[in-house]
Amino acid sequence: MEPVTSVEGRAIPFGAKNVDTDVIIPAAWLKTISREGLGEGAFETIRAQDGNVFDDPEYAGAPILIAGDNFGCGSSREHAAWALLDMGVKVVIAPSFSDIFAGNAFKNGILTVALPQKQIDRLMEVAESDPVTVDLETQTVTTPFQDRFTFEVDPFRKHCLSEGLDEVGLTLERDAVITDYEQRAQADMPWLANKKTQSEGKAA
């Protein structure tokens, strides 16, 4: 995963609230067995409308997306994060995010920045003509006009994002404590080990 440090560039002033993952990437695009190429289907229903912000040449390749409340609600499809990445989006700024989307974004090295609506409104204004800078180290969003907004980020996520760490690899290093847990669980809740499925699985 590519480390995220500082992202500077144009920000797509989308602004819509309750953007669900069916809007970010419609289900017809989920038939892929790869993570790549989904940018083409991103925001397909919105792109079908004339004068939409995503097809405005001004924002071609923009690394930042600004949206409204509850961004990424609905389906858990990680294809939404892959589609954004494939479009070139590295940061999404919104007042709030759905829990599942925020997790998916993080796991793909997309930084989700939550800011109050008032600051979002200001960034939407700036984005019309000028670039925006998002810096993970200082946890700030800045503009060429002296705007400086700070945001919260979970320390673990910050560490992983800035180092580009693979979470699966990190957890695999905890093998011993997981094994301890499994032994405790086997003693306390012996009905949980699913021997029947295991033997059937191996026979397959």
Partner: peptide
């Protein structure tokens, strides 16, 4: 609860998830 594909991978490999 629902998870994304990276979490599917995490659970397949480790049978755990890192959660808040």
């Amino acid at each position: 609860f629902g998870v994304g594909t990276s979490e599917v991978e995490h659970v397949l490999a480790t049978q755990t998830l890192l959660l808040k």
